[in-house]
Simulated scan of single mutants.
Amino acid sequence: MRKLLVLLISFTSMGCQSNKTTTSPVVSQEDIVEEAMLEAPNLQQYETAYFASGCFWCVEAIFESVKGVKEVYSGYSGGKKKNPTYEQVAYGRTNHAEAVEVYYDPKVVSFTKLVQVFFGSHDPTSLNRQGPDKGAQYRSIAFYKNDDEKKIITSYVSLLESKNAYDRPIVTQIVQFDSFYKAEDYHQDFEKRNPNNSYVRNVSIPRLNRFKENFKSYLKEESH
């Protein structure tokens, strides 16, 4: 734990900024649907966790690099509007945040470690902003589904504060999970599908690489 705290203190996050206008997919919608049908994993045996920490393109890629994580989906959570669209969320027309749904094997990676990944891969002291991303849709949220998860999150926040891990107060919201709405198909695996996209190249990939450098023992073999 002491080593992890040192890593957390030294980690500096730029955040992530998705385009305010709809980004055209590089591959066709038909290709995405066909591939999804062929590769859709059976996720019934996995647990789920939900986090928001800026643009979901970046957050999805980070959690997908973690050992024990089977699948990650980009989407929207934290608000009340049903079935929101990207445009509605991006322009602040809902109270949703860009979030991720993480499917993980608790025998390989614990919820505690996922919380550590969450706090170690963004700036939890930045209110309604991650790097260049501005607005409540990019706020920091750790969702919990039960009292045990809530205790894990609050205890870890207390630990970070007691160790003065940050020079500003942590403003992450700790919110009971209600619903998650999967984002449009072209947002899924966006970083992986669009490595030459200027935003991905200049913001997403550097953020992912900083996380990998600080959390080497948490990574899947192929992510090193």
Rank of each mutant, 00 (worst) to 15 (best):
N42K: 06
P132K: 02
F51W: 10
P25K: 05
K20W: 15
K212P: 09
F63A: 15
T154G: 00
K80D: 09
E149N: 03
K81Y: 14
I32Y: 10
K20Q: 12
T12Y: 08
Y91N: 14
E35C: 13
K67H: 12
N128Q: 07
K216W: 12
F119C: 10
A61C: 10
E87F: 15
Y144V: 00
L7D: 08
P132G: 07
R201C: 10
I170T: 10
H187I: 08
E71V: 12
N83M: 11
K151M: 03
V115P: 03
F190K: 01
Y91G: 05
S217I: 12
P25R: 11
E34A: 14
K192G: 03
K82C: 04
S217D: 15
G120A: 01
A40K: 11
C58F: 05
V89N: 05
I174F: 15
A97K: 04
I152S: 00
N197W: 06
N209C: 09
Q44P: 02
F56R: 08
S121E: 00
T154K: 03
D185E: 06
P124R: 06
E30H: 08
E60I: 03
I153T: 05
G131W: 00
D185F: 14
V33K: 06
S18V: 12
A165P: 01
I141W: 10
V66P: 10
E149A: 06
T94S: 09
V89M: 03
L4R: 02
K107P: 04
V102A: 02
S223I: 09
V89C: 08
D147Y: 13
I62V: 15
V109T: 02
V157L: 00
L5C: 02
L127C: 09
T125Y: 14
D123T: 01
Q176L: 07
D123H: 02
F143N: 05
F63T: 14
K212M: 13
R2P: 01
N197S: 01
N146D: 04
P41F: 03
R2S: 07
Y144T: 04
L8A: 03
M14K: 07
H224R: 13
S28V: 01
N196L: 11
N19P: 12
A49P: 15
V6F: 13
V109R: 00
P41C: 07
F63H: 13
P124Q: 00
D189V: 01
E47V: 08
V59G: 12
A90C: 09
